[in-house]
């Protein structure tokens, strides 16, 4: 049966976590992608490998991702689909449980594997355990942990783009505004390299040490919860159980002790580097390469070493 994926996009193209959700959805049936936004984003979805159809609307009702009208639209579309998926992004996690409750089904959050049409693997307890769950609900509503699925290729598909149906406006909420940080760096959950700083950074100003190494590597910047709590880094940089889950090719943890909560967000990275002055820090137990030293000495040296080819 047909499977629907609700896309996230950056204003011009669907995001990499969306393509990971497409990859998960491809295991379940023919994939239709719903794109709410500019036509260019819909066209990018049509090119994603494995996508059979794209439904698209530029209706301003959905321009700001308000959960109430979006869930209402998805409910109206649901009869056509056996599974409705979204990436486990802030947007997907906001709307999919609302959709599930409207359909009287239990949402299956943050899946890390598809076993069969009813059975999924999902991390619990900050990823310290993996639960295999079988859903008895007639329809499945799912969010997908992007780090666990290789994204479907951005090119190779040639799906038709059709108009999405029109939904009701429940009129419960209004969008007032947003402050979204503009960054030239790659998005945290899609980056091949991530450099993260912890509490040992000592101040928000000192985070430039992380940023300048990140820029040398074309990397995204992350932070531990401790660094976010201390106000050294914005919350959307947070890597961990309650922040973002990342699995880059290279993860460099700088001045991060390695609380369970943080490990939950990065332990599936291909190669982990830990730089910490405490040689007993738990981060070293998951690191492929550990360097014991004062980050304020090590990082400038690291940066100049990277500059040498």
């Amino acid at each position: 049966m047909a499977v629907l994926v609700l896309a996230d996009h950056d204003g011009s193209a669907v995001t990499q976590p969306t393509r990971s959700a497409v990859a998960a959805a491809s295991k379940l049936g023919d994939v239709t992608v719903l794109v709410l936004g500019p036509r260019t984003a819909a066209d990018s979805a049509a090119k994603v490998a494995g996508v059979a159809k794209v439904l698209h609307t530029e209706d301003v009702l959905y321009a700001n991702g308000l959960a109430e009208p979006l869930a209402a639209l998805l409910v109206a579309m649901a009869p056509e689909y056996s599974h409705l998926l979204a990436p486990a992004s802030a947007a997907g996690k906001n709307v999919m449980p609302r959709l599930a409750a409207l359909l009287d089904v239990q949402v299956i959050s943050d899946i890390a594997d598809v076993v069969d049409a009813d059975t999924f693997v999902r991390p619990i307890y900050a990823g310290n355990a993996l639960a295999t769950v079988k859903s008895a609900d007639p329809k499945k509503v799912i969010t997908v942990r992007a780090a666990s699925f290789d994204p479907a290729a951005a090119e190779g598909g040639s799906a038709a783009v059709e108009a999405a149906p029109k939904g009701e406006d429940p009129g419960l909420s209004n969008f007032l505004g947003a402050e979204i940080a503009k960054s030239e760096r790659p998005e945290l959950t899609a980056a091949k390299v991530v450099v993260s700083g912890g509490r040992a950074m000592g101040s928000a100003e000192n985070f430039h040490i992380i940023e300048s190494v990140a820029d040398k590597l074309g990397a995204a910047v992350g932070a531990s919860r401790a660094a976010v709590d201390a106000g050294y880094a914005p919350n959307d940089h947070q890597v961990g159980q309650t922040g973002k889950i990342v699995a880059p090719d290279l993860y460099i943890a700088v001045g991060i002790s390695g609380a369970i909560q943080h490990l939950a967000g990065m332990k599936d990275s291909k190669v982990i580097v830990a730089i910490n002055k405490d040689e007993e820090a738990p981060i070293f137990s998951v690191a492929d390469y550990g360097l014991v030293g004062d980050l304020f000495k090590v990082m400038p040296e690291f940066e100049s070493e990277l500059a040498k080819k």
Binding site: D8, N64, L66, S89, A90, A91, L172, S173, N174, F175, L176, G177, A178, E179, I180, A181, E187, P234, N235, D236
Partner: peptide, 12 residues
């Protein structure tokens, strides 16, 4: 708190 920053909503 959303991906990339903050947004503000008015709710009934």
């Amino acid at each position: 708190e959303v991906d990339g920053g903050l947004e503000r909503l008015q709710l009934k």
